[in-house]
Simulated assay, not measured.
Amino acid sequence: MDASDEPDVREHGDTGGRRARHSQERTVNAASATSAAGNRWGPYPLVLAGAILAVIFAVLVDPEWGGFSLGAVMALGALFRLTGGGQLAVRRKTTDTVTLALFGVALMVGSLLLQYPWLMPRYGG
């Protein structure tokens, strides 16, 4: 065997190794991109499903308790967003959390006042 043949064998072996490593890196990158895309949604599909069910319940069964359940779903969405659910890049996490929580609590209070009118404050006489 001649000395000029040895580098060719090593280069060929290294090239194959580089190809295999590059292929593995692509596989790992694709898997992490898929998990990142799934993580980006976070709990929002669950909140959306809960909101749809709450609206259906409000329309078909009882508007007051349907409104309460919709408010509860929104408040849970705020809690999920606060604990790190989703990676929305348009707004800050505090803006989403405060907005969802306020609307959720307002819906729950409003529906309780509709269900139990004696909870409503009375003014005048």
Rank of each mutant, 00 (worst) to 15 (best):
M1R: 08
M1Y: 11
S4N: 14
P7W: 11
P7I: 07
V9H: 11
G16M: 12
G16F: 14
R21D: 08
R21M: 05
H22Y: 10
H22D: 09
H22E: 11
H22S: 09
H22T: 08
S23C: 03
Q24T: 09
A31V: 04
A33P: 00
T34V: 11
S35L: 06
A36E: 09
G38Y: 09
G38A: 13
G38T: 10
N39K: 13
N39A: 11
R40H: 08
W41D: 03
G42A: 03
G42R: 01
Y44I: 08
Y44P: 01
V47I: 14
V47T: 09
V47F: 09
L48I: 13
L48T: 13
I52N: 03
L53T: 10
A54T: 01
V55S: 06
V55K: 05
F57M: 06
A58G: 12
A58H: 03
A58Q: 04
A58I: 04
V59I: 13
L60F: 14
P63Q: 07
W65M: 05
W65C: 00
W65V: 01
W65R: 07
S69G: 02
L70K: 05
A72G: 05
A78S: 13
L79C: 06
F80T: 06
R81H: 14
G84L: 07
G85P: 02
G85Q: 06
G86R: 07
Q87Y: 09
Q87K: 12
L88P: 02
L88G: 10
V90A: 12
V90R: 15
T95L: 06
T95K: 06
D96S: 09
V98A: 11
V98Q: 02
V98I: 14
A101E: 04
A101K: 04
A101I: 05
L102F: 12
G104M: 04
V105L: 13
A106N: 04
L107A: 13
M108G: 00
M108A: 02
S111K: 01
L112Q: 02
L113P: 03
Y116T: 07
P117I: 05
L119H: 07
L119F: 10
M120Q: 11
M120G: 03
M120T: 14
Y123P: 00
G125H: 14
